[in-house]
Design a protein around this nucleic acid. Sequence first.
DNA 1: ATGGCCCGTTTCACGGGA
Length: 267
Amino acid sequence: MPTLATWNINSVRLRLPIVIDFLDQFQPDILCLQEIKCQNDQFPRKALEEKGYIHQAVHGQKGYHGVAILSKTPLTEISSRGFCDIPESRHISAMTDFGHGPVTVHNFYIPAGGDEPDPETNPKFRHKLDFLAEMSEWFDDLVFDARQIICGDFNIAPHENDVWSHKQLLKVVSHTPVETDALNGLLARRNWVDLVRQHIPIEEKLYSWWSYRAKDWDAADKGRRLDHIWATRDVAAKATNAQVVRPARGWSDKPSDHVPVIVGFGS
DNA sequence: ATGGCCCGTTTCACGGGA
């Protein structure tokens, strides 16, 4: 079955062994990575080629951020866009056909936003809101007669069942109303479908990130759903299942704090 | 119980993550 996955890997070089494990076990056609934390020439191209991901679109930078698309099928029209006039690597896109016709895949790493949810006092939060506003404008210019997928680490948990405690997180960056309203506005703007919630009921608690700071992330289970896969309606009509790979939070003694999210598209 | 950890870097301290 054609599948697409997204995973904030928090250093692709440090965690190459568990990326390989994931690819071996799940064999996605496409894997979108965020926070690769390396420059383009430091990306472990060869090891991933050897796993069959011979098509790679990498947009790295030194030390922080950075995104990449790994694919078994050819990638064309590879492109990255800057946001907020800041030279950070937070987006890369490519066109491919991994089973149901050509589709453009956009891989995003939306800014985290710092600690204080006040754009007047916290420039990082200002940046996050500006980034979302610019995404919204950019959506208006996207050609929507083509099939599109947008995925990545959006750093926002939009629904109350996307966090462990809605009440306790209302003033915590990632779940404040100004952020969730902005993300829901983006979703509605061009009729995107949240493929994960299309297949996993909104009544069910669902997380893709757990802090490193908890002593026992599994027992505490204070997670948030920050990682998303959206698609245009024509693509969404082909999606048949979604899963969040929760066990990956415990893979190796050095896991990422995010786990992979996967969507399957028919037989 | 509002602290607790983890990454890369012109490193023994910092910025950034969320």
